[in-house]
Design a binder for these strands. Structure first.
Lengths: 350, 350
DNA sequence: TTGCTAATTTAAAACGTTATAAATCTTTGG
DNA sequence: CCAAAGATTTATAACGTTTTAAATTAGCAA
């Protein structure tokens, strides 16, 4: 059993195989088996005897064998890579980074790697996706900032390329996604402002073209109508508006007699900008007005504990994105790969 | 010249090669050349006639040929991948993201991809690096938050694995790095505070174990001693301190009669925390005290235009990191791959 | 023993590329 | 016109893996 096997193809039998990294052949030589058997054993094929499988696994572990990704990829056509389209419109606060952490976490025990495909690989996001598909640079794709008729989603659906997006679309074909329940976020946020006794509530919307803009608006309007309270939806600014512009807008708006005294900010920076603008106008948070904000890092609550927040866990979202993409890759017919994450409620401070 | 070449190994001659992606063989068939010749032509080997090279290049372009990364990697042993060790201690503001953008930019026209290796691939950063080297998962490594006797640097130097780090070390063996001139930053920042007429200046240092902590301290002390002004270096807090803790620290410190009235903040969040703490204590920025902060995003200046800032361009740093790593990979003896980026001076507002 | 089936292992080919060495074609000097 | 040298192209093998099909071994009934 321990004796060296007969040579395969008549090369020399140096166990360390030219002192390089261990390969299947290294194991085969040690175990006195054929390379094929070793390969099979490591993938736990049922036709290999249990005893052999265990022995091979043990040897592999002992010599620190790790399969060569290039060879596997060449043979199987699978890259063992998933790509994330990095946004240029990245929010200031580490949005992508959190998601990437989550994805990496989901990939931890697998053979998958995460590669970053900045959108300027090509000019547009669709082109970046096209490039990745066409040249099979990854087995699956993850991206954010989804639009109702997102061109990337359309392309990926057409080509059948595995993907999971962060956010929903309005396509009739169902597809995998992970989304945060922004309706509930906005609804709950508005209710809190109302509960705090605010007269008039306003919401800083995401850019119109993003799907979750509608969700937030819907949640907001639902709560507002239920309560029959005055409201305002500023058209001139959105979450992508630079903080200084937003701040100035808020300050100026505050001069008017009908200015809102309750704000929903679905982003931490926008909340800071609103506070800054209100402060310029002499208004005090939690006294003259209130904010309910979406919190994705600890930044906001650490700086402004008086802001009421509802948490969105982006790392968890990333983990779900990664996990679901793997499912989708391994089983194209996996159904119901759709996840709507509920807001995590921090009970108000005051 | 246009006639189909004789079969290689006697398969059928379908030009599209089983309707799959074009390979060297597709081109070879079209051009009536051997695969070897095509490979050579595409890499512009001098022994291939100019005319052939041009023709092959043209065909490749026309049919949208892209070399198979797996095959190249298997054959050459080069992964065409560079990895970035992602920090768990990521600052709140998109530090890594900016750097990754820069790296991606440097990699744009090359065949290199950027893969993200979160440090929890293994327990520690060194283990992550070890894993990548041992299993040759990348051709080079980039990481941040460098320490004077950084264990990652030691390992990489010992194994001769290509890397460029963001920040310097104190090893006597020179190695590639990109760093920001934090000495000058701190020196200049202190000088500005002094020029604004501040009595006593303080600096929020990075965590002690990071190399650039010393650089900042040195720059600070140099300016302070030149001017013979009072100063303070808080021991209890640093740049990694949560914003709320830092804010409370500042507020409490301000009660004392000898409290500083000038602050150097080498991070935007820390500046916001200081402002918040001072504001709690009733002090007004640019009146009762001043801040000079390091600015890596637009966050701070947009929210607090009265903060005086000195810019550090992380995307540019990333681009340099990427560019230098490629040089290092392609030419192990490349000398002087060391770059100290000067602070970018925004002239004070007031 | 023989023959047959099931269990287990194996050889050979292939994925697409590049390196080595050999082959062919061209040119040139005598 | 031939040989040698130079220019250009080519066949073959190899990288490490998986797949297909074939071979070997064991188990068992006759």
């Amino acid at each position: 059993m321990t004796e060296p096997s007969r040579p395969q193809r008549g090369e020399n039998l140096d166990i360390t195989h030219k002192r390089g990294k261990p390969t299947l052949r290294t194991i085969a030589t040690i175990a006195g088996l054929a390379v094929t058997t070793v390969s099979r054993a490591l993938s736990d094929a049922p036709q290999i005897s249990l005893e052999t499988r265990q022995r091979v696994h043990r040897i592999a572990r002992e010599i620190g064998y790790l399969p060569d990704r290039a060879a596997q990829r060449l043979k199987t056509g699978r890259t063992n890579v998933i790509a994330i389209l990095l946004d240029s419109h990245e929010e200031v606060v580490g949005f992508s980074t959190s998601i990437m952490y989550g994805i990496a976490k989901a990939l931890k025990e697998t053979s998958y790697h995460l590669v970053v495909a900045p959108n300027f690989l090509s000019t547009t996001d669709v082109e970046a996706a096209e490039y990745i598909i066409r040249n099979h640079l990854a087995d699956g794709l993850i991206f954010t900032r989804t639009e109702p008729l997102d061109a990337r989603v359309r392309l990926l659906l057409e080509t059948g390329f595995p993907f999971v997006c962060h956010g929903r679309t309005e396509f009739s074909t169902p597809h995998p996604y992970v989304d945060y329940d922004n309706f509930t976020f906005a609804y709950e946020a508005a209710r809190r402002l109302i509960a705090k006794g605010r007269r008039k509530v306003a919401v800083i919307l995401p850019p119109k073209r993003l799907t979750f803009c509608q969700h937030i608006l819907h949640g907001f309007m639902t709560a507002v109508r239920e309560a029959g309270i005055a409201y305002e939806v500023p058209e001139a600014v959105d979450l992508d508006t630079p903080a200084d512009v937003l701040r100035d807008f808020i300050r100026n708006r505050t001069d008017a007699p009908d200015a809102p005294d309750g704000f929903i900010c679905p982003g931490e920076v926008s909340a800071l900008a609103v506070i800054s603008g209100m402060s310029d106008a002499g208004r005090i948070l939690a006294v003259d007005y209130d904010i309910v904000a979406k919190e994705t890092s600890r930044l906001l609550t650490q700086l402004q504990p008086k802001v009421d927040t509802i948490h969105e866990d982006l790392t968890a979202a990333g983990e779900d994105l990664g996990r679901m993409l793997l499912q989708r890759i391994n089983n194209p017919d996996a159904e119901e790969l759709q996840l709507l994450l509920p807001p995590q409620i921090n009970f108000p401070v005051g």
